[in-house]
Amino acid sequence: MFESTPQYLWVYLACILLIIELFTGYTVLLVLGVAVALAAAVAWFGGSIIWQLVTVVGACAIFIPVAIHFLGMRFKPNHKRD
C-alpha cells in the first residue's frame, strides 16, 4: 500500500507537516513542508541522501527567515508619532 522509497517518504513527511500546519497555523511548519517537498523532488531526480539533506537545510535556511520577516511585517502595529 505505501511505498518506502525515499521519494515517497519525503512526500509523506511533507503531507504530514502541511496537514499539521493547517490545523495549528504555524507558518514555520508550512516552510518545513515546502523544504521537505523540495527534498522529495531531489530524491525523485536521483539525488543522493546528502543532496536531499542539503536541500532541506538550505531551503530552511532561506525560507524560515523570510517567513519570519514577512510575518513580523504583517503583525507589526503601525504607530504614528505626532
Score class of each variant (00 low, 15 high):
I19D: 03
I64Y: 06
F70Y: 15
H69K: 13
L22S: 04
F2R: 11
C60S: 12
F70G: 08
V31N: 02
H79F: 14
I50Y: 06
I49L: 08
A61G: 13
T55D: 04
T27K: 06
H69P: 01
V42S: 11
H79W: 13
I20G: 04
F23N: 00
I62G: 10
L30A: 13
L38V: 04
I64S: 00
M73C: 15
I20H: 11
G25I: 07
T24C: 10
G33R: 01
I20C: 12
A40S: 15
A43D: 04
L38E: 11
I68W: 14
L32K: 03
I19V: 12
L32F: 13
W51P: 01
H79E: 15
I62S: 09
G47I: 02
A40R: 02
V31P: 02
Q7K: 12
I62W: 12
G33E: 03
F63D: 10
L71Q: 15
P77C: 00
W10S: 07
L13N: 01
Q52V: 06
Y8G: 00
Y8Q: 10
A37F: 07
V66A: 10
I49S: 14
L22R: 14
L30R: 05
I19Y: 02
R81A: 12
G72F: 11
A35W: 00
T24E: 03
A35L: 00
F63L: 15
Y26G: 02
M73F: 01
I68M: 11
A40E: 04
A37I: 05
F75M: 03
F70T: 12
A35Y: 06
C15V: 14
C60I: 13
T5H: 10
C60K: 07
E21F: 09
A61M: 10
K80S: 08
A37W: 10
P6E: 09
F75W: 14
L29G: 09
A14F: 04
G58S: 15
T55F: 03
L38I: 08
K76T: 05
S48L: 02
W44D: 08
Y12H: 06
T24R: 11
V31I: 14
T55N: 04
W51S: 00
A14P: 02
V54D: 01
G33L: 04
L32C: 14
S48A: 05
V11D: 04
V42G: 03
F45P: 01
L9A: 01
A59L: 08
A61Q: 11
L29E: 07
